[in-house]
């Protein structure tokens, strides 16, 4: 949808005016259209301070403009540390980290998932938690006088089935990123 680059001039000729409504319908994205581009979010964002790839204000701007493809396929939306610093200060209650979550949720459905997040999601489906609790771990726990923890938690995988996340993950989500 975006046209050619003229010596690093990002010229955008096509915008998707529906994108902002799509994001607003997603849990967490409800307030996105309130943004008045004050820059408070980026001013306090630690990630933005250390990494020029990430600028929450600009991401919100791109969504409002309707740069759907560029936003959803960008790895920058995965860079939010969800520290909520901006959330506390945004004068328009845009709820930026939740907006980032909304964008990531849409991206996943569109086939873009960051490999690190894919890996986490798969681990959880398998073990019921982020880490495997193997016999060794449980031995150590009992040594310390702590209770054993059951290995695996099948209900978690069941939940993935109920919500459709299992299908999303097996259906090749993430192939694009």
């Amino acid at each position: 949808m975006e046209s050619a680059q003229k010596k690093d001039v990002p010229v955008v000729t096509v915008l998707d005016p529906k994108f902002k409504y799509e994001v607003a319908r997603e849990p967490g994205g409800e307030n996105i259209k309130y943004c008045f581009q004050c820059g408070t979010c980026t001013s306090g964002c630690k990630v933005a301070e250390f990494d020029s790839k990430y600028n929450p204000r600009k991401i919100i701007r791109m969504v409002i403009l309707g740069m759907r493809e560029r936003v959803l396929s960008g790895d920058f939306i995965w860079l939010c540390a969800t520290c909520y610093t901006c959330h506390e200060r945004c004068p328009q209650d845009v709820r930026i980290p939740e907006v980032m979550n909304a964008l990531k949720n849409i991206a996943v459905r569109e086939g873009y998932i960051h490999p690190a997040f894919r890996a986490q999601a798969e681990l959880i489906a398998g073990y019921g938690r982020l880490y495997e609790v193997d016999e060794l771990a449980n031995e150590k726990r009992t040594d310390w006088g702590l209770t054993e923890i059951p290995q695996g938690c099948p209900e978690v995988a069941e939940i993935y089935g109920i919500t459709g996340l299992a299908d999303l993950l097996s259906g090749g989500a993430g192939g694009k990123l």
């Binding site: 004050c38 820059g39 408070t40 979010c41 980026t42 001013s43 306090g44 610093t85 200060r89």
Partner: peptide
């Protein structure tokens, strides 16, 4: 004109 600099962007803290 007097040299006051206006900066667009609201500080967080």
């Amino acid at each position: 004109h007097e040299g006051i600099v206006f900066l667009r962007g609201k500080p967080g803290e």
